[in-house]
Amino acid sequence: MRQNPSFAMTDVAELRRVIDENPWVTLVSHTDDGLVASHYAVLLDDTRDDLTIVGHVGKPDDLIHGLGERELLVVVQGPHGYISPGWYGDVAAVPTWNFVSVHLSGVPELLSTEENLAVLDRLVARFEGSMPQPRLLWERPNDADFVHRLEKGTVGFRLTPTRVVAKRKLSQNKPDDVVETIVTELDAGAAGYTDPRLAAEMRRAHDARKGRA
């Protein structure tokens, strides 16, 4: 991802927030057979306060990626969306795309069976927790044999990134009135392009730029 100093994200707390709010990621590896990519949910490692993430892949994706043997790129895609030139007012302009994205790179560590089970348990609890009647990993009708068979079909990993590239391109280079117009359009606006999550990220970025956040 090409970086622009004006759009760079470096604050660890903000990066953790973006990762936590956008857990469905893309895993990319460069193998002897070329590039491979997979898609899985990850979580921040709850024993750390840095950008370490934990997750799992289903077999044989571990072999396809050479998991634990080579560098893995994890692409975290935050809110993103189309920005119309009509929202800039009566000036020469072209369309663009606003977005938040975090790239984490490093060689992952493979988890033990016990660690992987703990991560699988956390993943289910995280996403099932808001359901009216949550079905957690170890609750009936699941039994221990079922859970252990499930775990054997997966490979858990922990990635502490050695390289981080993070970018939020959210019209920070535009005047305040233009930013407000874009936010309004994203909040309520044109058919097909309404995106309150992207509008919220724009507000956050521009408040931070002005020292109000």
Results as ranks from 00 to 15, higher is better:
Gly68Asp: 11
Trp87Met: 06
Pro95Phe: 10
Gly211Asn: 10
Lys152Met: 09
Val164Ala: 08
Arg209Pro: 00
Pro108Ser: 11
Glu69Lys: 15
Arg135Glu: 09
Asp176Tyr: 09
Thr162Pro: 00
Val28Arg: 00
Glu115Arg: 15
Val107Gly: 03
Leu15Gly: 06
Ala188Met: 12
Val183Ile: 15
Thr113Gln: 12
Arg140Lys: 13
Ala199Ile: 07
Asp195Pro: 04
Val147Lys: 05
Glu139Arg: 10
Ala200Ile: 10
Glu109Gln: 14
Ala213Arg: 15
Val124Asn: 02
Val91Glu: 03
His56Asn: 10
Thr162Glu: 11
Asp20Arg: 14
Asp50Thr: 09
Ser38Tyr: 06
Glu109Ser: 11
Thr162Gly: 13
Leu110Phe: 08
Val179Thr: 12
Asn142Leu: 00
Ala190Ser: 15
Gly78Asn: 13
Asn4Ala: 08
Asp176Thr: 15
Ala190Arg: 15
Arg158Thr: 02
Glu109Cys: 04
His39Asn: 12
Asp176Leu: 14
Ile53Leu: 12
Leu150Tyr: 04
Ser84Tyr: 05
Gly211His: 13
Asp121His: 10
Tyr82Gln: 00
Gly156Cys: 02
Leu117Pro: 02
Gln133His: 09
Gly106Trp: 03
Val57Lys: 04
Trp138Asp: 10
Ser84Gln: 00
Glu139Leu: 03
Pro161Tyr: 05
Ala92Asp: 12
Val94Lys: 11
Asn4Glu: 13
Trp87Leu: 06
Arg16Glu: 00
Phe157Gln: 08
Leu51Pro: 02
Leu63Tyr: 01
Val164Thr: 14
Leu120Val: 05
Thr31Phe: 02
Asp49Pro: 05
Ile64Phe: 03
Val124Met: 10
Leu198Pro: 05
Val25Ala: 01
Asp121Tyr: 04
Arg2Gly: 05
Gly153Tyr: 01
Thr181Met: 05
Gly55Glu: 06
Gly58Arg: 13
Ala205His: 02
Asn142Tyr: 01
Arg2Phe: 04
His65Ser: 02
Glu69Ser: 14
Leu110Pro: 03
Glu71Ser: 09
Leu44Ile: 07
Ala188Leu: 14
Asn98Phe: 10
Arg122Trp: 00
Leu27Phe: 14
Glu114Thr: 10
Met1Gly: 13
Trp138Met: 09
Glu185Asp: 14
Arg168Met: 13
Gly66Cys: 10
Tyr88Leu: 14
Gly66Met: 08
Gln133Asn: 10
Leu73Ile: 09
Leu73Asp: 00
Ile19Gln: 03
His103Lys: 09
